[in-house]
Design a protein around this nucleic acid. Structure first.
Length: 303
DNA sequence: ATTTGACCTCA
DNA sequence: GAGGTCAAA
């Protein structure tokens, strides 16, 4: 697994820094990093390894204590969104019985602040496949096109800039197991490399306009656009609808059809319901419902 | 304007 | 068939 951050010399790094969570600041590393919002973290012996701002980072949690190394406290707080008042977010998001059950089982899950470019590529990869495959694609891409980075927490690969992705030879891309997504990623990388201000432009738009703008990238449809705005741009009203969320919304809220495939029209109906029902933090509600999918899709909806 | 099938890869 | 998208009916 050389594409991941690995500790130097095969023994755990000394996690020299400490951060204490306050009692009114719920946070849990495990559900946050394993819920499927990020794909480049991995856990070994109770320690999570990943990259924040191009630096290898190691983090461990025991209760309210976070021990970590490789980045500053400010970077850690920012990345894991520890400055967000999760309690009031979830109250705002409409605390119904389903959300309550999901929060009970996955408490402390936070939406992390991903880099927009990495987030964009990640969700182009994420269409129509499984999480292990997504992890493999991104790991391959970083190992082949990203710079190697070292630090006190270990070593790994930075996520490659758009220019580096665009200029990665065709056969190298194929070897990343991107499949037909390679074409999307190549053309999107070219567009981004030639438009360095794209992030600032999106940031200045409201959610609906940003969504429209995101869908101009090849391979970015409604689902991908909503994921990037939610995970990469802090637009918490975004309500991505995948097959799981669709099933949950049907089972628990009676929204949507029984058709085999999810049409653009039905996507609109469900995301609008989500936004209206859960409010400006609908995306947070979506993450908790998604995290609890195996439970929620087994309900009969009549209780 | 809506619906259908192909698409890489891996399970 | 999968945590979709696109282009062609």
């Amino acid at each position: 697994m050389s594409e991941h951050v690995v500790p130097e010399a095969d023994f755990p790094p000394s996690l020299s820094r400490r951060y204490y969570l306050s009692p009114d600041q719920p946070f849990d590393l495990d559900p946050t990093l394993s819920c499927g919002q990020v794909f480049r973290w991995h856990r070994a012996d109770g320690i999570w390894y990943g990259i924040i701002e191009n630096e290898p980072v190691a983090v461990r949690q025991s209760g309210s204590l976070l021990t970590f190394s490789g980045c500053s406290e400010a970077s850690l707080v920012r990345y894991f969104a520890l400055d967000i008042d999760l309690g009031s977010v979830l109250v705002t998001a409409g605390y119904d019985q389903y959300l309550e059950a999901a929060v009970r089982r996955h408490g402390g899950l936070r939406i992390v602040r991903q880099e927009p470019w990495e987030c964009l590529v990640s969700y182009l990869c994420a269409q129509n496949t499984s999480i292990p495959h997504i992890q493999r694609m991104l790991g391959n891409l970083c190992a082949r096109a990203g710079d190697e980075v070292c630090g006190p927490a270990g070593r790994g690969y930075a996520f490659p800039e758009a220019g580096a992705v665009a200029s990665l030879p065709q056969e190298e891309k194929r070897a990343c197991a991107l499949g037909y997504r390679a074409g999307y990623i190549h053309r999107t990388a070219e567009a981004v490399a030639g438009d360095p201000d794209w992030v600032e432009r999106i940031r200045q738009m409201d959610y609906e306009d940003a969504r429209h703008e995101m869908m101009r990238f090849p391979g970015a449809g409604p689902k991908v656009a909503d994921c990037i705005l939610l995970f990469g741009f802090e637009m918490y009203e975004a309500f991505p609808v995948d097959v799981w969320v669709r099933a949950i919304m049907k089972t628990c809220y009676g929204v949507g059809s029984a058709a085999k495939t999810l049409s653009p029209k039905e996507y609109e109906v469900i995301r609008r319901f989500g936004r209206d029902h859960f409010g400006p933090y609908a995306g947070y509600a979506q993450e908790y419902l998604f995290a609890d999918r195996q439970h929620l899709t087994r309900l009969n909806g009549n209780e």
